[in-house]
Amino acid sequence: LVRYRTISKIPQITLNFVDLKGDPFLASPTSDREIIAPKIKERTHNVTEKVTQVLSLGADVLPEYKLQAPRIHRWTILHYSPFKAVWDWLILLLVIYTAVFTPYSAAFLLKETEEGPPATECGYACQPLAVVDLIVDIMFIVDILINFRTTYVNANEEVVSHPGRIAVHYFKGWFLIDMVAAIPFDLLIFGSGSEELIGLLKTARLLRLVRVARKLDRYSEYGAAVLFLLMCTFALIAHWLACIWYAIGNMEQPHMDSRIGWLHNLGDQIGKPYNSSGLGGPSIKDKYVTALYFTFSSLTSVGFGNVSPNTNSEKIFSICVMLIGSLMYASIFGNVSAIIQRLYSGTARYHTQMLRVREFIRFHQIPNPLRQRLEEYFQHAWSYTNGIDMNAVLKGFPECLQADICLHLNRSLLQHCKPFRGATKGCLRALAMKFKTTHAPPGDTLVHAGDLLTALYFISRGSIEILRGDVVVAILGKNDIFGEPLNLYARPGKSNGDVRALTYCDLHKIHR
């Protein structure tokens, strides 16, 4: 019993810090008490220290592992850092350059016999395009090294910054494609005289377009951006097909006994025919423009016929181009109408809503002055909100995010209106959640004399007048207030005048 009563005193000691020596009952000389009392004092002292730490809000209350900052290894790049964003855009520009100039170089340097010394005699450094290609190869190699040090988000939505895990993730992902696209074939085969082989191998750079397509997928929600990307894709495919079309004609031209190829026909049409040795002929500019003209006309199913396939190889390629053109029509131009419709969806919704308003007016036989006010209010409210119901949009977000959005939407009023000066951010967040926005066209009466005042109004834009009878008592403008002081009276009061809008007004109100 003594032991039980001794232990039962522990909660009292913990909360009230009572010393055991003052209790005459606990001072009985028993061996059990002498053993338990020192333990009680020690526990009391420890609990006292913990309570003191909690009340003082000291940093040592938290466990040590929670006080440590997340460790980022040296030379690790955050995937959302500004440097990584700028670097990704730079790589994107280099990939676009590669997609345009690599097929052009591979096709127009394929057994090209233009006048001038061969590239091997001039030297590697004197070729501007080769120098640019070398810079692109170096940048792609540097990009691989950067990807080995860039964080990523795993399946659990955690940012991984450990170098080993980053390397394994990159090896399992895009490393092989990036490595093949970054191989400097110019340096590996330079001086061997195989410019045709170098041009063909350099087309491996186009593998990076797969990554670019995935990154550009984030802009699919913007109709104008999608339309622009589709047109660029169409032009890029036409450019690639033009390079292939020229390569076919250029390879067949020296081996044909009869002059029936499209390059021969082009030379005869523009007065620059090929001679018996295969030299001469149109310039590279004429060849490229004509090839691009043929691919565009074939892809769009126009086909004027002034550039036509004559050999079997050219006919087979033309059939493939027609098939590609039909697929592009289905996948690209078939979506253009939907994209344009999405661009004008706001206008369509406006006309639909206006039609419903006019049908309501016609069905209920609203008189002319009231009908005009109804239409003007709808037009003004639509121009202010673009038909978007803010309350319906915010309803799907958590309250903390709703408060931040409301604070942002009402920031101008909260910053410049005098009653809100000096208020804490928590108070402003709470008030912003209570605001209701209303609009009024010129001549609209917001409050009639004798109406119950259940709200306090803040003028965000425009001006109003307060009338008693036919006498203008006051004219209020931006950041002015009218209405009933909230919670100042037990019952809502009545208006002693009319409140009429002089201009288009936007008002925020808080109800009782």
Score class of each variant (00 low, 15 high):
K202M: 01
L401F: 04
T98R: 03
F397M: 06
L299I: 03
S81F: 01
I260W: 01
S276P: 05
S161I: 11
E112R: 14
T98L: 01
A381I: 08
L327W: 04
F304E: 01
E112Y: 15
A167D: 01
I270G: 01
G164K: 13
K436F: 07
G281Q: 01
Y377F: 05
L413K: 01
E314L: 01
A225N: 05
A430E: 11
H364Y: 04
L110M: 15
L355A: 13
T424F: 02
W75N: 04
S331M: 10
P282L: 01
R371I: 01
L374M: 07
S194N: 14
L343I: 05
L414G: 03
C126G: 01
I332Q: 03
M231D: 01
I339P: 01
P398H: 03
G191M: 03
G280A: 03
D404V: 02
L428V: 07
L401A: 03
A392T: 05
Y219G: 03
G123W: 15
G334P: 04
V132S: 03
Y222W: 08
T98H: 01
V159W: 03
L209Y: 01
R205P: 03
V142S: 01
P128V: 15
A69N: 13
V289T: 01
K215M: 04
E196S: 13
A167F: 07
A403K: 10
A392D: 13
M231Q: 07
A130N: 03
G334S: 03
A348F: 14
V212C: 06
F108I: 01
P117M: 15
Y377T: 12
I77Q: 01
A440W: 04
C232Y: 01
S105P: 01
L110P: 11
A224G: 12
L94Q: 15
I270K: 01
P118A: 07
T347A: 10
I77S: 01
H380Y: 15
K418D: 15
A330W: 07
I72E: 15
F175I: 01
L413F: 04
V136Y: 02
C427T: 10
I138T: 03
Y124I: 11
R259N: 14
D286K: 01
R358Q: 07
Q341I: 04
T150M: 01
V393M: 04
Y274F: 03
D178W: 01
Y219D: 01
I324K: 01
Y350A: 01
G116C: 05
N156E: 12
I138Q: 01
D404M: 02
R74S: 14
S220P: 05
L279E: 12
M433R: 11
R342M: 07
F101V: 14
F234M: 13
N265C: 03
L188A: 13
K202N: 02
Q372N: 06
V100T: 01
